[in-house]
Write a protein that binds this DNA or RNA. Sequence first.
RNA 1: GGGCGAUUAGCUCAGUUGGUAGAGCAGCGCAUUUACACUGCGAAGGUCAGAGGUUCGAAUCCUCUAUUGCCCACCA
Length: 713
Amino acid sequence: MKQLPEQLTKPFDASSVEKELYEMWEKSGYFNPDNLKGERPNAFSIVLPPPNVTGTLHTGSAIMLAIQDTIVRFKRMKGYKTLWLPGTDHAAIATQSKVEKDIYKKEGKTRHDIGREEMLKRINAFALESQATILTQMRSMGASLDWSRLAFTLDDERNLAVRTMFNKMYDDGLIYRGQRIVNWDPKGQTTISDDETESEERKGVMYTFKYSHDFPIAISSTRPETKVGDTAVAVHPDDERYKEYIGKEYTVEFAGCPIKIKIIADNAVEKDFGTGALGVTPAHSQIDWEIKERHNLPSKQVINEYAKMYGLANEELNGKKVTDAREYIVNWLKENNLIIKEEEVVQNVPIAQRTGAVIEPLPKLQWFIGVNKTFNHFGKETTLKELMRKVVDNKETSILPDRFEKVYFHWIDNLRDWCISRQIWYGHRIPVWYKGGEIYCDTEAPTGDGWTQDEDTLDTWFSSGLWTFSTLGWPNKTKDMETFHPTSLIETGHDILFFWIARMILFSTYALNETPFKQIYLHGLVRDAKGRKMSKSLDNILDPRELTKKYGTDALRMSLLVGNGPGNDLKLGEDKIKAYKNFANKIWNATRFVLERTTDHETDVELNNEDQAVYDAWIEKRLDITSDIENYRLHLASEKVYDYFWKVFCDDIIETRKARILENKEKESAQTLLLKLLREQIITIHPFMPFITEEIWKYIKRDSDDILMVTSW
RNA sequence: GGGCGAUUAGCUCAGUUGGUAGAGCAGCGCAUUUACACUGCGAAGGUCAGAGGUUCGAAUCCUCUAUUGCCCACCA
């Protein structure tokens, strides 16, 4: 028996080698594709979905890093010029509100007490300080990211890209400023896009009533407080019941407020719903606003940005919260005997995703991206919607799993103009300046006095939407753009398909006339062992930092890969992670055995027929695994790697060859077989479990070999 | 209301183009210092949600039903 190196005589201890190995990889320079050796005519590139700058590593980011790093390491070993580009996201609203909260807690001050400039300084300081945390944690997962290209959605280069894009779209007439009904978040004090809203089922009461006894038609509403803002009642043009009233105007006294109501006919009204008549409140309902536009009706705003009533003739109502106003008006209706019916209903109430506040639809002057507007695109008339549809339709990019293509198309078909302006301070400020009635849009401020810049900032997804090319140097013509765009793959959770993936497609097809990525891989959510969402209140959060300490990073990575097919949620319990810690130990011990028993045969001898057959079977298996990875079936590849090493190599091949080595029967062939299989499996396992394999490589590599990370697959 | 999934061993899930049902964990029996007890060997465990259809052959393809999850939607 051969004397083993000191390190190998002890059990494998992941925590003692991981940090050192990562530093070694980073120092090698091979994370940067410019330093990779050999010809490498084909490029493989991925941008990392940038985590929130103030965030910490959670199981969601761990799964993303595990999947992407496995693919990236594989491609690098396969000889591609491989770039995996890291960055962080400023996450406008989330970050600002966190800092605001902290300041209010410590100093009792609001952002308005502090002022825009000082506030931004503080948010920036917090963001940068916090960024270090998430970057360190990403390293701890073994992620082979090219840190030399690190980007931030709010740094100077990305700001230039944002201003350039805004300006280009403004010139093409795709970005416009308009008065519209927007989703107003009264808690966050800002507009939000349609995608940032959620709906929540709540019990409500549907009141059927008349404005006054003189008014001929009854209407229904769950929000009677908005009715003081009504300017019309709409009925279906074919509704015999109301035909005689169409075109007539009434002035009525409603809850102490005089309102002027015109009866109109519109096809949007359902004859069979409620009374078949719709009280039109243009200022506080999307559909009513559209009716107003069609019929040229007046609009009266009666609810302000704080979700309180205002501007009404009845002073008692002014300043009341909408819920209090509702109660007040229902009482008034009852006192005046105007209620015809009260019905308990379950309704979907729109909620702001970030703050949980009930959305108040308000008319506001905001910036929008027109998705249905026709414009000249590289010599062809088209719309943004068509561009977004086309790249998926013609397979320039394909989605895995493919059922999400339907989801994507459905979203596009229902997409309305995207409201991109936000009334917060942290973010890319809108590059538009005003002076008197003049308006100026460019990438730089206008010269001359008296110009003031638009106060608003852009939706955070505007800047992350440019991510695949803003990170490669756009709008400058760079070598990176030429080499790495379109990127090969984007890999992210399916929950941000609309927010992010779709927006990247929008900007890339628009500005570059090419898809941002050739392949989209969507993973699912990580849930706990019982299938519940991980949340603080359930106290079932698994912290990847603790898991890597306890079981080793390799074990955690494997547990996130095995059995986790694209698009499906993953249930994760500690048992599963522990199973892969055992696997790491198995690899370690098998290595010890092989190295102990093969002392005489550092060089290959010819295999006997039996051993050659075993080796050939492995080659088959390896081809199979390779094909799985190439087709993004990591859930199968990882399982096969595990199964072959343990069940075939250890339990069968080693056990039988062990006997032959001890009994000296065709010993050399057996030893060569074991060495070859060990060496090749360590290479194959490396993308999945980079740390233990790189550590073992130190003891099995030949003098001419480089580190395992760049060893040919 | 519309769309998309899921339903396979006690639990968690694989099953790539249809060809005699697989793994991990748990449980059961045996082995007792073996490279590895973070182990090995063995046995047990399933009408693949239900019904119908296509096929020589269906967990896999089609239709319907049930249960369940997710996404989307301005019924006032």
